[in-house]
Design a protein around this nucleic acid. Structure first.
Lengths: 237, 237
DNA sequence: TAGTGGTCTAGACCACGAC
DNA sequence: TCGTGGTCTAGACCACTAC
């Protein structure tokens, strides 16, 4: 006899709410229905809804504001600049990054790029190359790759400093998490020119894959950074 | 009229339990008193104790095991090798690090080292230098610094691969979190000899400060790592 | 003032582990 | 079988926000 497994109620409801979020049932600007309303909609107690929402808050997908309601996390200018930005000063404070676009074009994706983005090999990608300044010094050379099919006409837009805000507002693609891999590289002539350092200066290269609500890889971003005054900071728990 | 602020009950109780943990009231090998017992001890409902413990579990200080009880997190060989070890293969899998000690001595701490460890400038430190192998290749040269006063006779002991287990078992100093800063450096002659790479190869240098239950800095660890087959991996949420 | 999330309680039943 | 943590309920009161 096979053993049956039923997920706890709050897990089922968490997934139902999550699915509703992905389907765009609720607007980004209004609060979700209140906990008591959701409780009667799903015919469970308020405590169970609460636990389901707790999980989504812990995942950074929703946030609560006492007295106002529960809202969908949006990437807005202030937080987005820092939430996915791990470079800090040695004392732990974070500089405000500024961006200068160098080019934005479309091209066929290489095999490893397409596989990282989960699209068919050879699909057309949009490539954005930009230079980022910290405290007015060029510090990061950033190559951003996304599928042209997922982001039609992205290359024809004005690109803001915080791209994830644009992805959400214009394409309804919400970045929820990212994975980064850091390696040490040697600056080649091209890179060193942009970053105003000597050729062969050691740099860190950060390879980031950003994922959306469906946990699909959406963006591949490769950042080559000068370190020294700034460090790549990470907490372990 | 000054506004009075009373922390929620579960926060007060969380701090009381945390203080009891630090004072060593409960052994590392036995479960804590059950939630119902703690509830009657503190004269609150079981749900309130539950929320207090939830927080400590989220902080990785306790863990629960259904049917058995709630326990203090210990660094044991298996988990300790990975919990604070961020180097991974490109596919995300983690190699098992092995260690070879090169030397272990005591010396006066430099100013920046003592300040990182929160001890008086010039205090004697124990310095451990060791080489770590991943998949049988030398990949990391690690310098570990701790206060000799906090770890008497550490330099006379056999040093295991997982130091944090030793800190906990022998000195009752439990590492709960760490902060890491990654920079790019160029291998000098000495380092490149140990790591069997050419001089000036770009490396990543990881500067870690590890903290104990009292949130005091306890260990400064500087790791110089060859990257390429391995990467420094970090998730952003 | 009305509605929201935040805290707290008391009690029920379930699933797992030790004996 | 008994004790543990895990889930779920129903209802109370508090603190904050909007109106």
């Amino acid at each position: 006899m096979q053993k049956l497994f039923t997920a706890p109620l709050y897990v089922q409801i968490r997934e139902e709410i999550f699915a509703a979020l992905r389907s765009g049932r609720w607007s980004t600007n209004e609060p979700l229905p209140s906990e008591t309303k959701l409780a009667s909609e799903f015919s469970v107690s308020q405590g169970t809804i609460r636990k389901a929402i707790d999980d989504l808050v812990a995942q950074n997908i929703l946030y609560r504001h006492q007295g106002r309601g529960t809202f969908i996390r949006r990437h807005d200018e202030q937080q987005s600049l820092f939430r996915f930005f791990n470079l800090a000063r040695e004392d732990g404070s974070k500089p405000v990054p500024a961006s200068v676009n160098i080019h934005c074009k479309t091209r066929k994706g290489l095999k490893h790029e397409c596989s990282a983005l989960g699209v068919a090999t050879g699909e057309r990608l949009i490539e954005i190359l930009r230079l980022r300044h910290l405290d007015h010094q060029p510090m990061i050379l950033e190559t951003i790759l996304v599928s042209q099919q997922r982001f039609p006409d992205l290359n024809k837009r004005d690109l803001p400093n915080t791209l994830y805000e644009l992805y959400g507002d214009e394409y309804n693609i919400h970045i929820t998490r990212a994975e980064e891999q850091v390696t040490a590289i040697s600056a080649d002539i091209n890179v060193s020119g942009h970053l105003k350092v000597k050729a062969k200066t050691p740099l860190i290269e950060i390879r980031r894959i950003a994922f959306d609500l469906h946990d699909q890889p959406v963006e591949l971003r490769i950042s080559q950074c000068v370190t020294g005054p700034y460090v790549y900071a990470c907490s372990l728990n």
